[in-house]
Design a protein around this nucleic acid. Structure first.
Lengths: 182, 182
DNA sequence: GTTCACATGTAACAGGTTACATGATTGG
DNA sequence: CCAATCATGTAACCTGTTACATGTGAAC
């Protein structure tokens, strides 16, 4: 597990979808906060999945829209998916360049640091708003749990950043930037 | 930015280190919670960095220990590092297979779900304990901020999981597992 | 007329990981 | 003697991203 294949199966397990929609789900939808995938990964994965008999597809034509290839999970696909979920999941991975910058605040320009923090705070707020909205329009227990999880995370991150930004701002630039004065 | 090179520079900016220690820092130390790197990435990166004049190295021999190649950042390296930190950092990425499993709780065996949750809770607790310990033994503002950030995150995640695990457990397995009864 | 959202797909490339190869020294 | 920790490094491989190539129809 950990691959685009499993992600595709997971999304298709909620219902039919095209490659385009899968990518969207992984960028804006339910899945977007803890997993990602691009077209270049999704389309080949879908083709492979179909070759393996785990999904089927058919072309749909709606007048006024480009034709789309819609995929559906098969019984074999569902079984493979359940098997994949039964395996021990890998550890969560958080990759944050922002935290690396904060860690090294001494060598970053104070203005830049303030700017980054403002941006980050705005970004957290946007995500929180989106998730609150999603939470209201959702009945599915698994999704509600995951949204609530994300919400708890982002609220905690926002609070911490808002409460401790001055600690960073106080030390920003104190290491003497190469091109700065002094 | 986003690469092992920058990570190496960041670690070396705190002081000299060998490849082995850098890898350790990225797995257990200050850096471990939001960044990662393996030997296969670190050693070549260090060699490249040295070829580019951003770090220097010398061999150290301590009796009773294998010789180690210790790297130190140069002025050029520091400048390159500061420049890298000045670039806009990429978005934070959270990858969580665990959340994917929770999202699809209906198709996972209830016992397996409970087990995973117990494990995860224990894992969060371990991380929290480690970070609290690290927080007590740390004076560096950037590190304190990052540790506090991680602490806030993991506490929020732990609380949410503890408070809402029954929502997941209630629906686990309700989709009728292929090999299960019924 | 041009921009936007929809829609599919490929190929070159980047960036890593895993596993391997090797070896010293300490402690049980 | 065996396991563990320290220590460095390479090569094969995998996985996914970026950028490209292509095209439709709607809305402004």
């Amino acid at each position: 597990m950990t691959n685009v294949r499993t992600l595709c199966l997971a999304i298709l397990n909620f219902g039919e979808a095209s490659g385009y929609e899968i990518r969207k789900a992984a960028h804006e939808g339910r899945f977007s906060h803890f997993i990602a995938a691009s077209y270049g990964a999704i389309y080949p994965a879908l083709a492979k999945l179909e070759a393996d008999g785990l999904v089927t597809s058919h072309e749909e034509r709606h007048p006024g829209k480009p034709p789309r290839r819609v995929y559906a999970i098969t019984e074999a696909g569902r079984a493979a998916f359940v098997r994949a979920l039964g395996e021990p999941p890998g550890a969560d991975v958080l990759k944050s360049e922002f935290l690396l910058v904060m860690l090294c605040a001494e060598v970053v320009d104070p203005e830049h640091a303030r700017h980054l923090i403002d941006e980050r705070l705005a970004d957290y707020q946007t995500r929180i708003d989106q998730m609150e909205e999603a939470e209201r329009n959702c009945e599915h227990p698994g999704s509600l749990f995951v949204i609530g999880f994300g919400l708890a995370m982002y609220r905690a991150m926002r609070s911490h950043l808002a409460a401790h930004r001055q600690d960073i701002e106080a030390v920003a630039g104190t290491a003497g930037l190469p091109q700065a004065a002094e």
